[in-house]
Simulated scan of single mutants.
Amino acid sequence: MNRFMLTALLCTGTLFSASAQVADTATYLAGVKAELVKKWPKNRTINLVFHGHSVPSGYFRTPDVRTMDAYPMQVLTAVKERFPYAVVNAITTSIGGENSEQGEKRFKKDVLVHQPDVLFIDYALNDRAIGLERSRKAMEKMIKMALKKHIPVILLTPSPDLQVDLLEDGNVLEQHTNQLKALAAQYKIGLADSYAAFRAVAAQGQALKELMAQSNHPDRKGHTLIAQQVLTYFGQL
């Protein structure tokens, strides 16, 4: 299969099915969860690192940044409630406006230096600007670098842009979602499907603008929806 056929299949979702081996939510972070339940003096600091663009950075209505309302901090809060003896950091290495190619270039010095116990990557919303093939290459480089250091990786599918109809089959965000699903299955890593969560809301008839601070940035409720997808990997919260 050549690269152009692969891209076409990814765009239509043909390469991904319910049976694809994306990492299991119950077992993928078993080692991390085993560390999170340890009490002093046997515990250690656990670093959750969130790499991506403006959404994990906490941008609401630009230039307003609401770090404590964004999903990385919501995840930290929920993990701490679940694991009260744990020392946990939520480290955001995201930059507003960035795409995965830019994020890959600074990956070693800005991300790996934090020695992540879990790495979350969220670039798909901005990767529309560079296209599927370039996005796949950059994402794959970051995945490989992390896995080489035995770091669990969880990819995030895109949150909405109100200019894109999530209910339209084959829309550009769905194309990037399908590509990320295929990458997660290929490398047997985690996937937090933000896109599916927001699409389900839209399918129920709720206006997505009620979950958005501006066209391409979720508000606190929207970030909660993303956090819920991430938290499935940390057990019942």
Rank of each mutant, 00 (worst) to 15 (best):
R82P: 02
A202Q: 15
A23K: 03
G96T: 10
R61L: 12
A202M: 11
E174F: 03
I151H: 05
G97K: 08
L191V: 04
K188C: 15
F4R: 03
P84A: 09
D169E: 15
A90F: 01
H53K: 05
M145F: 04
H150N: 14
S17F: 14
V164R: 04
D127K: 06
A185W: 13
A20S: 15
A227H: 08
A124H: 11
G205D: 02
T7C: 06
Y85H: 11
L156A: 00
G190E: 02
V37G: 06
I121V: 11
K144G: 03
F4K: 00
E35V: 10
D127M: 07
H51D: 09
A86E: 01
L180K: 07
M1K: 09
T157M: 03
T93P: 09
K105T: 09
R220K: 15
I91F: 03
G52Q: 08
M1H: 12
A26S: 13
S19K: 12
A200H: 12
L147V: 12
D69Q: 10
L167I: 08
Y187P: 01
V113L: 00
A185H: 07
V172W: 07
S19C: 05
A185G: 06
L191N: 02
S19W: 15
Q115W: 02
G58H: 00
A90W: 01
D127C: 08
S100R: 09
R66C: 00
H176C: 05
T157L: 04
F198V: 00
M68F: 12
A26E: 12
K144W: 07
V88W: 03
L9E: 14
K105N: 09
R128G: 00
K148F: 00
A20M: 14
R199W: 04
F16N: 10
K141M: 11
Q228W: 10
C11A: 13
L155R: 00
N178V: 04
D219G: 14
Q163K: 13
T27M: 13
R106Y: 13
N89T: 01
A196K: 14
D161Y: 11
T14D: 15
